[in-house]
């Protein structure tokens, strides 16, 4: 049986917006085994991205227990959480968020710059990551010289290059045409099945969700397996 990658127990997230207390997630329980490709669907404002931010350690829950890859995140200091994020999570954004003045190679290399790896080792890892997304021939191109699908593949290579066990993807196909979207989804499936990555993908697109092993629906901060 696969080990548990994500364990959420009664996780809530609230924040103040003006004088109003907003609670995008309320007492959420979730269990994701390692190597699973999970799709999260739900209407806008249902808390999908908030959950993704909590899972990736860029936001903290207001209450509840969140254990990822054996580490309880609420017990970590900000500094430790940053270091944990660098080792354990790769984040794929809807709009890629590549740094425009850097080449594909340099963008993918970014997560490794703070590691103790030598230049040669970094180079080897970046080339391997770009090879995995079939973009070694475009490594010296800047984002403006790439198509949307290619940019997203570079972003996936960047998320992968530090070899994190967990990938979170926020509508990774939301800005792509169908053909490019299919290619990205195949790549994510391959990463889960062949490379054992745990993937949590937020999507609005039922066809994209169909590529995942399991789909959960978020409605007003509550998870539903079969809506």
């Amino acid at each position: 049986m696969n080990e548990t990658m994500i364990h959420c127990q009664a996780v809530s997230k609230s924040y103040k917006k003006g004088n109003t207390l907003v609670t995008p997630l309320e007492s959420l329980d979730l269990e994701v085994p390692a190597g699973e490709f999970l799709a999260l669907m739900g209407p806008s404002g249902s808390g999908k991205t908030t959950l993704l931010n909590l899972l990736s350690g860029i936001d903290s829950p207001s209450s509840g227990k969140l254990v990822i890859h054996g580490t309880e995140l609420s017990g970590l200091s900000r500094r430790d959480l940053t270091a944990w994020r660098a080792r354990n999570v790769g984040y794929i954004f809807q709009l890629y968020h590549l740094i425009p003045v850097l080449t594909a190679f340099e963008n993918v290399e970014l997560p490794l710059l703070l590691s103790p790896l030598s230049k040669r080792d970094r180079h080897a890892r970046v080339v391997a990551a770009l090879d995995l997304v079939s973009l070694t021939d475009r490594m010296h191109h800047t984002p403006s010289e790439l198509s949307g699908g290619q940019e997203q593949r570079v972003a996936i290579a960047r998320a992968l290059v530090a070899d994190p066990p967990l990938l979170v993807a926020d509508e990774p196909t939301g800005d792509l045409d169908r053909e490019s979207a299919n290619r990205i989804l195949e790549l994510l499936q391959q990463l889960a099945r062949r490379h054992g990555k745990t993937i949590v993908m937020v999507t609005h697109d039922a066809r994209a969700a169909a590529a995942a092993d399991r789909t959960l629906h978020l409605e007003k901060g509550v998870l539903l397996e079969n809506p």
Partner: peptide, 16 residues
């Protein structure tokens, strides 16, 4: 601001 937020997401600490 977005680039810096992306770097922070990638695990860059504030001091970096």
């Amino acid at each position: 601001v977005k680039e810096n937020a992306v770097l922070r997401t990638l695990g860059y600490p504030g001091r970096a």
